[in-house]
Design a protein around this nucleic acid. Sequence first.
DNA 1: CTGAAAGCGCTTACAG
DNA 2: CTGAAAGCGCTTACAG
Lengths: 340, 340
Amino acid sequence: MTSDEFVEGGKPTLEAVGALAGVSRATVSRVINGHATVKPEMVDAVNAAVAQLRYVPNRAARSLVRRRTQMIAMVIPERTAEFFADPYFAEVIQGAALYASSTDQTLTLLIESDADPEKTRRYLTGGNVDGALILSHHSRVPAYVELSDTVPMVFGVRPLEPAERPIHVVDVDNVEAAAIATRHLVARGRTSIATISGPLDTAAGIDRVNGWRSALADAGLDAGPLESGTFTPASGAEAMQRLLDNGARIDAVFAASAQMATGALEVLRAHSIRVPYDIAVASVDNNYFSTSANPPLTTVDLDTANKGAVLVQTLLRLIDGEDVPPFTAVPTALVERRSV
Amino acid sequence: MTSDEFVEGGKPTLEAVGALAGVSRATVSRVINGHATVKPEMVDAVNAAVAQLRYVPNRAARSLVRRRTQMIAMVIPERTAEFFADPYFAEVIQGAALYASSTDQTLTLLIESDADPEKTRRYLTGGNVDGALILSHHSRVPAYVELSDTVPMVFGVRPLEPAERPIHVVDVDNVEAAAIATRHLVARGRTSIATISGPLDTAAGIDRVNGWRSALADAGLDAGPLESGTFTPASGAEAMQRLLDNGARIDAVFAASAQMATGALEVLRAHSIRVPYDIAVASVDNNYFSTSANPPLTTVDLDTANKGAVLVQTLLRLIDGEDVPPFTAVPTALVERRSV
DNA sequence: CTGAAAGCGCTTACAG
DNA sequence: CTGAAAGCGCTTACAG
């Protein structure tokens, strides 16, 4: 008797597995779903049959009866590609997709339509997904906050304004990340530490300024000058130039992103200011920009891929009705290279 | 009588829509699926009921009976994030996701596991998806070619060796793209045109060299010197340096990627060689690197987002059993900036 | 042209 | 501890 007898044509079904193992399909189902009430010998027989037939449960059937789509959406801004010089999204997506693949959830990418913002909301509320991860730009966040009691959601960034209702966010502690970098500068004996901040209308921009400021205060140092950029290399170069033009005597710069640090480094080089001898530069982000900068950047690793994984993990907990804290912090760590 | 009477609790079903419209659920199903055999007045009644109840078909139920998962996978290399300085994947994904969202297919990202390559194959052959888009590195392609008669597949790159069985690829015509750039250099009066090629073990690398060579031959010009890079800025800089070191008199360079062109430009600047006055530089890729180069690059736009869309479109045709040509070319176009 | 009915492949009360 | 049966929400022959 070959196992072929149990699969006529297409994919094997529960029925076929049951026939091979000599049990009902209800029992097979129980074994597959780990319902501990099955006799060990039946468990073994079923598992053997599953392996022999290479049985894979039909997602649609399971999803239909469980009333779960088994899908989660990752919502990302439409203009991502234009800003893809920023490796952030790629890393989060990669981390999230990898984690999702170890569960029976499917991760789908939902690109926000700038032309039709309602489309995304309709999709999310139309029962297409069990939950959503929101990585939109901060300006879009409030609109999603409203949906968060219709469909489970986890945000990748804290809203600027305190949300009107309890929400769940997974992010690094940006205050702490900036403080880590700044403290390292202090520990290396720097005393006049400027910052090139991110945009001050973003949570990350604000929080990193606060981290820089508080680390300085803790060390009994005055806050150095602050110039803001937009997280891009060009904006970092311009901010560095303004810092120099303003004539303040500084011996270190904390840049709120590796991209801005890269731009700053170019300006310093153009002025023959030696890094780290004359001015040390520390930043946040451990990515392509940090390693290929000249000199390579001492920076804070935000572990963005891990953030992607934790986002999914947290969302699944929420979907399962577990109690999830409003904020889950992803750990960060200093990585020392040659710019400090 | 309010429409609430037809939806007790959860999402409205076909049954509820039928009750509101005064028809059977079979008829509602026919209207929703556009089976032209329904009387116009019933069509209207059904559509009104659908709108009123905001009815959205249950994907799982539909998928179960149609024996289609309604999902397609995009297979991408695990190490993507590390190379994400290359905007290519982000753009393809964006184009593909956007197109998929206009259909009732869901696009899911499948990251190849370097540790367990079988995992991806099992997923694809386990009935999880209706088809797959393969964007892997070239070395992985042959393994997928084997699967292409088990599950419909479209490749984003032509295999290096002619495939053992008929496959479907969607890509730009790399020979033509390179020829466009080179012809433009020729039209501008350049006569000694070198190339910084991509890796010569990739289809894009090889094809772009051939395009450069044939454009030159067509113009009655000798092929200039060739140095190879790996598509990265650093490799472009090194190749440019070798070109200079070798002392050949050249008045133009065709770089097979914008990233390599960026690196080459830096070397030329360091040598005070003026672009385009002394040496003109044309490239391929219209992305962040092309616009932020100094000077901005005259280059061939590969319309990568559109490639993503066409990949999905082609795969859906294949899944529907249509006749699809083995190669679908995505159009390219020259964009003139200041490097030529 | 339309409806009643079967069935897609699962899960899970309900009996036993 | 296990099985027979109902049912998740659709689509589609099959009658009429």
